[in-house]
């Protein structure tokens, strides 16, 4: 039964993730007065790449990198419940908690970093270094906000946190939400924090040496992981969801915000984004934390 549940979660995340990615490309195009690709373009690309040959192999660890990254993304998904009340689509969340999810989210980047490192492409490692540097910076405000939320709900169980919000946390604790949103934009790899992948113009980034089915695996895990992160944010700050409709519109609103944010701002250099993230959102988060805990007493 649990296997079926997990499979359904995975399939949902895969499809919704890719449709969201298609929407991202489409909507960004409209921002830039282009027509853009169809919504299903990335999905088709992913399927197509699964059947393509790879350009080159750098040994077994090179292949294990994307696989570990995909494992990390799927594990993250499995430990985040989709709905706060229902038994189905809760995955393994009964066996884990928010701390576990926070750490599982880091597993993928580290696994991929191994694969990129063994590829020996300096541009790939450049992306990894940027990614890990951005990672710790974006985690700081996010952790403060999440820790405050855990303390407010007196639980580290995600379903409990989602269900215990009478006023949703985004409105009850706006400062924490704003701080977490900055981190979230960075987590989604959006501008102004998108120097890691540098998706359009620079020939660098973690994916530079991968091709064929492994590139496709990286794309798929990215779609799944994005959806998992969206669900996590909805659970933590937007009061969770009680059904598919609620989950989809809440995640979509959040996603739309991220796209809009990214479409407007230019890109930070790595040190700039670190500098920004450990200053502005962190201060907001700390003030929010002090407010939240003072409120609670």
């Amino acid at each position: 039964m649990i296997i079926l549940d997990l499979a359904l979660m995975l399939i949902t995340a895969y499809f919704v993730g890719f449709i969201y990615y298609g929407l991202y490309r489409n909507i960004t195009a409209r921002f830039q007065r282009r027509i853009g690709p169809t919504i299903f373009q990335s999905f088709y690309d992913s399927i197509k790449f699964f059947g393509k040959k790879e350009a080159i192999s750098h040994g077994w660890m090179f292949y294990l990198g994307p696989i570990i990254m995909a494992t990390g993304a799927i594990m993250t998904l499995f430990f985040i419940p989709f709905f706060y009340q229902s038994e189905s689509f809760s995955g393994l969340s009964g066996y884990g908690n928010l701390f576990l999810v926070l750490y599982l989210m880091l597993l993928g980047p580290l696994g991929n970093a191994m694969g990129v490192g063994v590829g020996g492409n300096p541009f790939g490692v450049m992306g990894v270094t940027r990614g890990l540097t951005r990672l710790f910076a974006l985690e700081l405000p996010f952790y403060i906000a999440v820790v405050a939320i855990m303390s407010i709900s007196q639980s580290a169980d995600i379903a409990t946190i989602a269900g215990s919000q009478t006023t949703i946390n985004a409105f009850a604790h706006p400062l924490l939400f704003i701080a977490a949103l900055f981190s979230f934009v960075a987590m989604m790899g959006q501008s102004p924090f998108d120097v890691v992948g540098a998706p359009v113009e620079v020939y660098s980034g973690p994916a530079s040496e991968f091709s064929g089915k492994f590139l496709s695996l990286l794309m798929s895990q990215s779609a799944i992981f994005s959806f998992a992160k969206l669900v996590l944010m909805v659970n933590l700050f937007l009061g969770g969801a009680d059904g598919f409709f609620e989950l989809l519109w809440k995640t979509f609103v959040l996603f739309l915000f991220v796209i809009a944010f990214g479409a407007i701002y230019g890109r930070f250099k790595t040190p700039q984004s670190v500098d920004f993230l450990i200053k502005v959102p962190t201060v907001i988060a700390i003030v929010g934390l002090i407010f939240a805990t003072a409120w609670g007493n």
Partner: peptide, 10 residues
């Protein structure tokens, strides 16, 4: 009570 995890399942 606040948080627990199952290492075997994990």
């Amino acid at each position: 009570e606040m948080a627990s995890y199952n290492g075997f399942v994990l």
